[in-house]
Design a protein around this nucleic acid. Sequence first.
DNA 1: CACTCATTCCTTTTT
DNA 2: GGAATGAGTG
Length: 824
Amino acid sequence: MDFDHLLDDLTPPQKEAATHTEGPLLILAAAGSGKTRVITRRIANLIGCGVPPWSILALTFTNKAAGEMRERVHTMLDPQGDDPRLTRGLTVSTFHALCARLLRRYAELAEHDGVKLGIKPDFTIYPAADQLAAIKAAVLALGLSTSNWPPRSVLSAISAAKNELLDAEAFSLRASDFYAKNIAKLYSSYQAKLRAANAADFDDLLVLTAKMLRDSPAVREECQKRWQYLMIDEYQDTNHAQFVIASLLAGDGPEGGIGPNVCVVGDPDQAIYSWRGADITNILEFEERYPAASVITLGENFRSTAPILAAADALIRNNKQRKHKDLYTSREGGDPVTVVLCRDERHEAQLVTDWLRSHAEDEDGEGARWREMAVFYRTNALSRVMEDALREAGVPYVIARGTAFFDREEIKHALGYLRVVANPADDVSLGRIVNTPARGIGATSLGRVREMAQTTGLTLWEALGRVEDVPGLSARATNAVRTFVETVRGWTGGGAFMGREVSGSLAELVERVVRESGLERMYTKQAQTSKSESDAERLDNLSELVSSAAQFEEDYDPASDPFAFPAGDSFAPAADPQADAADATTDPATTNTNNNPAEQAETPPLLAMLRAYLEKVSLVADADAIDPAQGSVTLMTLHAAKGLEFPVVAMIGLEEGLLPHSRAQTSESDLEEERRLCFVGITRAMEHVQLTSAKYRTIRGMTERTIPSRFIEELPREHAKVSDQSDAWADTSDSLHNDASDGFDAGPTDGHSRSGSAYETKPGGKLAQARRELPVGSKVRHPQFGVGEVLSLDGGASVRAKIKFKHVGVKTLVLEYARLQRLP
DNA sequence: CACTCATTCCTTTTT
DNA sequence: GGAATGAGTG
């Protein structure tokens, strides 16, 4: 097949980067320089040159970026979509997802090699809330107070240590002062808790993988043999642990050669994660580690108009600890950046809304361009006022917060149950749910059980199973525990996931858990008594969870699940490159773990699926939730904006203390990172940027006078027009009703007169939004079901659409999850 | 033991 | 403004 045309639309430097396939390569790619394009072409080119797809590993920052990259490579090589084998086995993943996967697959092999990881392949990934709970328990267990040792800061100290690959022991050896010594104690106590629960936190995924690759020759060789070509995107934001993993995966390359085929892509000017342990010196380290590395700089910007780029360039030049690189564009013309000073945050939100609307209207397709707009802010808290204004104005918007759904109380509880089902040793989850809803197992009783577990060395779950051995427990509490244990056993079929009661369907399991746990009843009751809208929403959210599980079940491919057995997809062996990669499935892991075949071979399919589901849920990032196919303005933090582009961009809250943030002004390098953050925001914009600053802002209930961000002054006046609107806004309290002429007076008294549907009173409501974007009769495409037509929409917190598909008939889908694409 | 209400402390950014 | 404790009552 001829793939030469793939490179036709690249500039000479881009082409050089895309075709430089052998040996170490560092690509310094300025903002908007077509980085993603180069990476995807490079992968496609490799495959076109005959490199087997399964020997290519590409690491990205978010799952979303990974998915997009995979898709783009695929459509490039296989526009007809009729030959999945062309990219079969290509691995595109985030560091964390890859690590989770490697650990599951190789943990046992590594243990066999004498490497003590302390986790079994079915380990649980602890979400942030559970991490904090575990830390807090550790603090209390050491007899310290949580006010002197706030779990948050303890956790971030531990996290920093982990990112430097210091385990508890190494940390303890270095600890010299009182503070560090206590952190060391907490660190090891926290680790002990995680291990006892067969759990790993986010950082552990990296730490343990690094350890496994470093200490187990079998695993390292296996991986090095398989992945001959390694690519890492957003390299400036990788931390030390990630550097070590990458370098262990890459190996040294052929003997006497110039080094392994490892290609890293990054831009020091966009490094915004130093607080997470990311280290710009990784880029320097790269050249040190691979002295023969080639370096290619991509400086031409293809995204932004000249004034936007000039403003961004002027801003970033203020960073002293920086190697300057020229930014240039061949795009002529374009409007200057606008800077607007507003009275307060509500005024700001109003002006931004008006500004967005003006750009929506001056384009041909009326109202159709919301999706091309974004609002960025430094902290999540700033989104609320913006949301209010957009909702009020009837502008559709989405917030890029993928984790928000899973952070809700009711969802956390339901997932807590599911985690216990998947891993009964998970004490933290068990603790969360054992008495939610209240079932008579209160703090006192639970404390007794915990005590007994502690002294006998049992897990909490095991102790609950032997409740009769717990001293001093009331008959009532004993009975309550028995009932609880029975209920959970009913879901797991006593741990075997077999039997009359266990159906094998994930969605059904989730539904049963929601119902039989009593969560459903609890929230139904609350909704009836309190009539608060949020309580009614909880029920909707729970059924949405069931839908998401159903969706997952539909998309689930057991072959790509590291639990499934035997797996034969992407881990095809490197042994015989000539053989058909798709079919040659002598899986290395399955042949090597025969020392313990019982455990793996008997992992029931439902359990495997449940674990895969929980893993997916644990690894979602905010940026993953962005769906530009929806016709909405996107709201997100500056951090989440990295890697994206929008024709129209508004940045709010350009004030001292917010951007640069007050917590990031202690050192010059902190301040420079804030400046890079601002730079990242501006360079996302293709056509128009507006920066706003409010004279007064209410934070945590306190209204304070602000100072405009120093970054505003750093913008050149010829490319950044400042307009002071802060006095144009009369200081009257009814400011938000100013636009009542728009017709959105949603007073409760006349809400019903306008329309038969109660939802019509909320112009920005999800259902109304869905009706605008996906009216009945629209044609849509679903990744699984193909082409269909919308029959009806109905709502609540989760909008569902009935869709008639050509081939599979009528389906009801939750819009948020169904990746629908609207067809003309 | 469960539930309600008042008080306290926050929040930077995220895989 | 809001989540997360803690005291106090049924």
